[in-house]
Structure formats: C-alpha cells, structure tokens
Amino acid sequence: MKICIYGAGAIGGYLGAQLALAGADVSLVARGPHLAAMKADGLRLQIDGEERVARVRCTSDPAELGPQDYVFITLKAHSVPAVVDLMQPLLGPGTAIVTGVNGIPYWYFHRHGGALAGTTLQSVDPGGRQWHGFGPERAIGCVLYPAAEIVEPGVIRHVYGKKFPLGEPDGSKSARVAHLSEMMVSAGLEAPIRDNIRDEIWLKLWGNLCFNPISALTHATLDIITADPATRALSRAMMLEAKDIAERFGVHFRVDVERRIDGAGAVGAHKTSMLQDLEAGRAMEIDPLLTVVQEMGRLVGRPTPMVDAVLGLIKQRERMAQAA
C-alpha cells in the first residue's frame, strides 16, 4: 500500500514519520528548506525523549510519485483548492483521499441525506473545485488531535497526542477505512473508526471557531482566553450558535460547552494555530473555521450574530496585517 502525505509540515510530518518507521511505503510532498533538509538528512522526529530518523521519498512535484492508495491532505484548509490540479497524478481509480484539514471538509454533504445532500460549500470549496477535482466518493474523514511543531527544517518535535479518528461519509466500516486504521495503529497511532465522523469534526471545530480568532485578536493563550470572564463568555456564545446549527444537521455533541472550554484551558499557555500564523505573517484559516459556520447557518435559516462579529474583526485584522 502506497501512502502520500501531501503537506508534510508538523502534523503531516509526524504522521508520515510514524507510518514510515513502522514499515509503510510513504512519500512526502513538501517545499522549501524543510523539503531540502528532509531530502538530505531524512525526516527527524523528536518524540518520547529521543530522535528517530525516517528515510522517505520527498518531493515538491506529485507527478514524480504516481498513483497512491491513500493520500493524506494535511495542508492548511484554505490552501487545498489551489493544489487540486497538482494532485491529479496521485489519483488512481481506487485512491482514497484522507482529509486531515481543520474545519468542515469539502465532502461534508456527500451521502449526508436530506435536502442538502450533495451541496457544496463556497467558503471551503469555492466553485466546487475539490468536489469535482477529487470527487467526494474518494473521501475518508480524519480529525487531527496531536500537536507538533517544526523546530528547524527537517526536524519535527511531537508535543502531545496521537489520536486520528477516521470515518467514511456514510458511516460504514469499509475495507479501505479498516485497513487504514490497522496501518496507523501498527505505527503507534490511535485511529478509531467513527460511525459518524461529522460529530468528531464538529467537536474539534467547536473550539477552533472561537479560540483561534479570539487568540489572534488578543494575542492571549488558551489558558487566558478560557479563564477570563469576558473571552470565556464570548467563546460560549459563539459555540452555542454553532451547536444550534450543527444539531440541525443531525450532529451530536458528546460533551457540553463548559467541558469543551475547560478542556481547552487545560492545554495551558498554548498559542493557537491562527495566532501562530498571524505572528509568522502567514494567511490565517478564517473561512474553514468561521465563514463556513456562517454559511451553514444561512442554509438552515439560523442567525450567527456573535460569529458574524468576530468574523468581521478577524478579517479586518488579516487585512491590516497584509497591509503592514
């Protein structure tokens, strides 16, 4: 089985290294100094107090790799539409695309049931580029819970977590998702198969949609956001708006709002990915985390005043950062 990690940054690199070290046939798509370092010295993974080196095929050109059995997309979600054409050489008749991106994935309404089945979301898949370029039938959902960072080109430090829940859009336990789970477990990862992966997607998005923009606007870490009465209340209000929308699509939240907020606070003085992107001058993941909630609210006629307000602020913050 051939596995390609498209976007071998911190999380993609951690995943690829673990799979490769367990004997899987892995290739990585990356770019820049990180790619050059991995080509020269292998992918160096710092984990459990030691450094492990994975020697894997690395490239910036997917055409060098040919069709794969599984392609993990571990790019920032807003970067994916632009690489749909570049990824075509990786896709054979039976290739599965594993969407390890934050927020709502392009295939969300595939085999969803109801009046919105087959709907594409402009905020995450403008013009249906992924829907038509990849095909929703290829998709396997995946939620990324680990934290990792690139400490220098070619070197990834695992911070915490090893859980990657998987699921088919229709909730079935297919042969392809079962085999993928087995491979990941053999690599020391947790890869439970969910019969409703959308519940897991929303559970992670629930926190990201508020903690990420609030942190980028205030430069506060998770412990501060969740402890301060004002930002905690704003987080709660945004999450309740999202919960109202998600439940209209049949989503079940297995924890309540307060427990979800407390769980984020327990992570400690952690900078969210959006704050890290802002500080590094990179584009922030705004549409996949906030605009999509607004768009889905419009689909079911539900207002999102708090999400709308924070969305307006964070978009203005991005414009100001780009103009600086």
Rank of each mutant, 00 (worst) to 15 (best):
A10R: 09
A10H: 09
G13H: 00
Q18W: 05
A22E: 11
G23Q: 10
G23N: 10
A24T: 11
A24R: 13
S27Y: 01
H34G: 04
L35Y: 03
A37V: 01
M38E: 07
L43D: 07
I47A: 12
G49A: 02
E50I: 15
E51I: 11
R57C: 00
C58F: 00
T59K: 04
D61Y: 02
P62Q: 02
A63K: 07
A63T: 14
E64I: 01
P67K: 10
Q68P: 05
I73A: 07
A77E: 07
A77Q: 12
P81F: 00
V84C: 07
D85T: 15
L86Y: 04
L91I: 10
L91G: 02
P93Y: 00
T95S: 07
I97E: 11
V98N: 13
I104M: 08
I104C: 02
L116H: 09
G118V: 07
T119Y: 00
T120W: 03
L121C: 05
S123R: 03
G127D: 14
R129I: 06
G133K: 09
G135L: 06
G135A: 11
E137T: 04
R138K: 06
R138M: 08
A139L: 03
I140V: 13
V143S: 12
V143W: 07
L144S: 12
Y145K: 04
P146T: 13
A147P: 12
A148N: 05
E149G: 08
I150K: 11
I156S: 02
G161M: 09
K163S: 15
G167Q: 02
E168Y: 05
E168H: 07
S174D: 13
R176N: 02
E182P: 05
M183I: 09
M183F: 03
M184A: 10
M184W: 13
V185L: 03
S186R: 15
A187E: 08
E190T: 14
A191F: 05
I193N: 08
I193R: 06
R194A: 14
I197T: 10
I201E: 10
L203R: 15
K204T: 07
C210A: 14
C210D: 12
F211V: 15
P213W: 05
I214W: 01
A216V: 01
A220D: 13
I224Y: 10
T226Q: 13
D228Q: 14
D228P: 03
R232K: 12
A233V: 03
R236Q: 05
M239V: 01
E241D: 08
A242M: 11
I245K: 13
I245Y: 04
E247T: 14
R248G: 10
R248S: 09
V257I: 14
R259H: 14
I261P: 12
G263H: 00
A264T: 13
G265Q: 05
H270L: 00
K271E: 11
L278R: 08
L290R: 01
V292K: 11
V292M: 04
M296G: 02
R298L: 03
P303A: 00
P303H: 05
T304C: 08
T304L: 03
M306C: 09
M306V: 15
D308A: 02
L313N: 13
I314Q: 14
Q316I: 01
R317H: 14
R319Q: 15
